[in-house]
Design a protein around this nucleic acid. Structure first.
Length: 826
DNA sequence: GCAAGGTC
């Protein structure tokens, strides 16, 4: 029997399809898919075989000194017992094994791990095949001429693992211990996350240090016949054109000169034609950046793309490649869109004489650029967001095979009272790829045809006082782009790194702003462990890995050298341990401080009760017992904005999709104290027996609800929207004897909420499927499939038999279902 | 429970 091992289940299935010419069947072993035909078996490792875990004796890491840890051996342990068990079972029966993991460094490492597992059982020959995309031709060719595992390349990857863990875990542990941060809120440091955080912190430092400067700009309206256009004043500054006037008196003088006349003479007209080339194929970074201009976060964009990939609509979304593989025939792919929602554009592209896709600079060996597969979803198959992202990917593919656009630029210079004015016009002559790719800006600026010497009227002159602006914060896609430029992180991890920085309380908002803690961590690292916050650590590691891969160094050389360097860092760190700890603790507190306590003058802080709920408490506790409530949903985040009335920072509650700004906790509490409950009808739970009635209530924590007047004896309640005025109408719901409610009745867009009980029931039904889609690893495309199989809410999923679900829903594995169920049990 | 790499 021949055993073929791939990196992921999906690849295993496709390779089996290709090699068996469609005759492969799948069976399950220990919950792992095995594809079989004849005497061949293909199994995907799902990336779980490789794993560096700490030895169990270090699991209680609070008691372990960091330095002991770094000298401790890093051991490898498989993280998914069932995958390993399956692999070993199959290996025992095989007389030959082929490693077919991804054609990159990490793929080689995963392949080597699999090789070692096989070697534990048997000494059958193990070969290695390499192909850059899972297409018929490439896979067949690779299997026709198998190669050997490159152990040096795998060792390079292993050195990376060890060094990352050594530095990351030891420094993380040191900072967390010194600041006594031991729960979920540990203080982490790492080779990729820390240089990324430093980018954000450095930019924030520039912004803080920025000293704005005043300047003035002058504009004039010029008019030819009845067509007006705007021109800007400029002057010669040592041979270059300058628009900003830095001296107020000089600006006023120019303004007076221009105002003294009401006409300008055209002194030069220049026309130029520019071609605007279509964009290159999507790699992960370019995709994230395009999706971000549609308003998607990096994480969200990737998770939608992964969902579309799993459903079979787009290619693998984690790729560096910007060159389509040779065997992608653009004509064939365009043909697939004839008769679809994209028919018109696809047909117009097919009419072109020559269809030659653009190429980017990066041609890699693992996966093709992101493009549609040719299997089309209908709008009903996917959520609105998924459709929007799918359309982006389709249109990007269209753009890469479309023609260039042509622009006509028109530059006009005119003189008035010896002062110069200029206007730049821009006209799209040939829309080219813009016709199929409406995302990149194609805005025109109209300047009429004028001729040299022509006299134009000048009805208005304006002077604008401005200030230089600090540099802008990096947005998420800009950060990911910069990480790629610096070589930090990989296509599969960059977006996760940003998410991690959010989760760790290092950054907040979008564009991300560093918290006080982040500033302190970067500062401490710069002083004592500069290596780990600089992108040079990655650069050096890359160089070392190349040396290992080329056989010029060994894994031991490189990791020993790194370990010695870390030991030296620790010698300095240990001396300053208390100082660093105090500083970090102070910074942590600064991120939780809301403002002065009105009762004692100490700081009011965001705190957490023993039950886990958040509230505002006084730092003077137990002497001062002043408190304020916070909403029950989400995690509080202190914003920069300060309430004018109470000198308190506003608070935002982070709760994923339901994130909202709570505002000033004192304002919210006072508003609730001043409002009165409005009775609207009988309580369905206790009216008959006890006479309880439902009322609209404002809670001190800022939320509103319909609750029983006998609370806490009766805790019947219905949710109400957080924002907007609520009006009670004269129309009554017959079923529940309650009035219908309207939110924001006086606005342009009032929302008829209706009877609160009916509304809540509809809400529950509507959200059942959405709740499914919200689970980790389920998107709306998969949720739709689950719903079709009768699994339409969380409770059904929780009780469902995982094997039945996996059998009935295509593309869903039993392991997945069990993971979802485990999530629900948490 | 700590990193970063993979995949789900």
């Amino acid at each position: 029997m021949e055993l073929i091992i791939t990196e992921k289940d999906n690849a295993a299935r496709r390779i089996a399809e290709i090699l068996s010419e469609g005759s492969a069947e799948s069976e399950r072993r220990n919950g792992v898919n095995v594809y079989r035909w004849g005497d061949k078996r293909v199994v995907g490792l799902s990336g779980h075989v490789v794993g560096v875990d700490f030895p169990p004796e270090y699991s209680d890491w609070r008691d372990v000194e960091p330095v002991e840890l770094i000298s401790a051996d890093v051991t490898k342990e498989p993280t998914q017992e069932n995958i390993v068990a399956t692999l070993k079972q199959l290996a025992r029966r095989a007389d030959e094994a082929v490693i077919a993991t991804d054609y990159d460094r990490e793929g080689e490492l995963i392949g080597k791990e699999a090789y070692e597992l096989i070697r534990d059982e048997t000494d059958i020959p193990v070969s290695r095949v390499r192909f850059s995309s899972i297409t018929d031709r490439e896979v067949r060719e690779a299997f026709a001429e198998p190669d050997e595992i490159d152990f040096d390349l795998a060792a390079a990857g292993e050195a990376r693992q060890i060094i990352d863990l050594m530095w990351g875990a030891a420094l993380t542990r040191f900072l967390s211990l010194s600041a006594r941060q031991l729960g979920d809120d540990f203080i982490s440091v790492g080779r990729v996350q820390s240089p990324t955080l430093k980018l954000i912190v450095d930019r924030e430092r520039e912004i803080e240090a920025f000293d704005p400067e005043d300047y003035w700009e002058l504009f004039a309206d010029l008019q030819k016949d009845s067509v007006a256009f705007e021109a800007q004043y400029f002057y010669d500054d040592d041979g270059t054109e300058a628009e900003r006037v830095w001296d107020e008196a000089a600006a006023e003088a120019a303004y007076e000169d221009l105002q003294s006349v009401d006409a300008a003479t055209v002194t030069s007209v220049r026309r130029r034609t520019r071609t605007d080339s279509p964009p290159t194929p999507f790699n992960t970074t370019a995709f994230i950046s395009a999706a971000s201009s549609l308003g998607y976060s990096a994480q969200r964009a990737m998770s939608i793309a992964e969902e579309l990939y799993t459903a079979g609509y787009v290619t693998y979304p984690r790729t560096d490649n910007t060159v389509y593989p040779e065997d992608l025939d653009p004509d064939d792919l365009l043909d697939e869109f004839v008769g679809s929602a994209f028919a018109e554009d696809a047909e117009s592209l097919l009419e072109q004489d020559d269809i030659a896709p653009t190429e980017g600079d990066e041609e890699t060996t693992d996966h093709p650029p992101i493009h549609p597969t040719g299997e089309l979803p209908s709008k009903a198959d996917v959520s609105e967001d998924e459709w929007e992202v799918y359309e982006l990917i389709v249109r990007r593919f269209f753009a890469t095979v479309a023609e260039a656009a042509t622009w006509e630029h028109l530059r006009v210079v005119a003189e008035a009272a010896d002062r110069s004015l200029k206007a730049n016009g821009k006209r799209l002559v040939e829309p080219g790829y813009h016709a199929v790719y409406p995302y990149s800006s194609a805005s025109e600026n109209h300047v009429p045809d004028v001729e040299e010497g022509e006299e134009l009227t000048m009805p208005e002159v304006r002077i604008e006082a401005k200030q230089t602006q600090p540099p802008r914060r990096y947005g998420q896609s800009r950060l990911i782009q910069t990480m790629e430029d610096l070589g930090v992180g990989t296509k599969s991890t960059r977006h996760n790194t940003l998410e991690k920085l959010y989760d760790r309380g290092y950054i907040e908002g979008d564009p991300p702003r560093p918290t006080t803690l982040a500033m302190a961590v970067v500062e401490a690292a710069e002083e004592f462990a500069d290596h780990v916050v600089s992108e040079e650590m990655t650069a050096q590691l890359e160089a070392d890995m190349t040396r290992i891969a080329d056989g010029e160094a060994t894994l031991e050389n490189v990791t020993d050298e790194s370990r010695e360097m870390l030991e030296r860092v620790f010698e300095e760190l240990r001396e300053s341990r208390e100082e660093i700890g105090d500083y970090l603790q102070e910074s942590l507190k600064a991120d939780k401080t809301l403002g002065p306590c009105p009762e004692c003058g100490e700081d009011l802080l965001v705190r957490r009760s023993r039950q886990g709920s958040y509230f505002v408490g006084c730092d003077g506790f137990p002497e001062c017992r002043n408190t304020l409530p916070l909403p029950s949903t989400g995690e509080p985040l202190v914003l920069e904005e300060v309430c004018d009335d109470h000198d308190m920072h506003h608070v935002k509650m982070l709760a994923g999709r339901d994130t909202f700004v709570h505002g000033c906790p004192r304002c919210e509490a006072e508003a609730a104290d001043e409002s009165e409950d409005e009775v609207i009808g009988p309580c369905p739970d206790c009216n008959e027996d006890e006479g309880g009635e439902l009322a609209i209530k404002h809670l001190r924590s800022g939320s509103r609800l319909v609750g029983c007047t006998r609370y806490p004896d009766c805790d019947y309640s219905l949710p109400l929207p957080r924002n907007g005025d609520i009006a009670i109408t004269d129309t009554y719901c017959e079923d529940h004897d309650l009035p219908e409610l309207v939110v924001d009745p006086d606005s342009d867009d009032p929302w008829e909420l209706g009877c609160p009980i009916c509304n809540y029931e509809e809400y529950k039904a509507r959200n059942a499927v959405e709740d499914l889609a919200d689970l980790d690893g389920i998107g709306s495309a998969t949720a739709e499939k689950l719903e079709a199989a009768g699994v339409d809410d969380l409770d059904t999923l929780r009780e469902a038999d995982s094997d039945t679900v996996a059998t009935e829903v295509q593309g869903v594995s039993e392991t997945q279902v069990r993971e979802w169920q485990a999530q629900l049990d948490d």
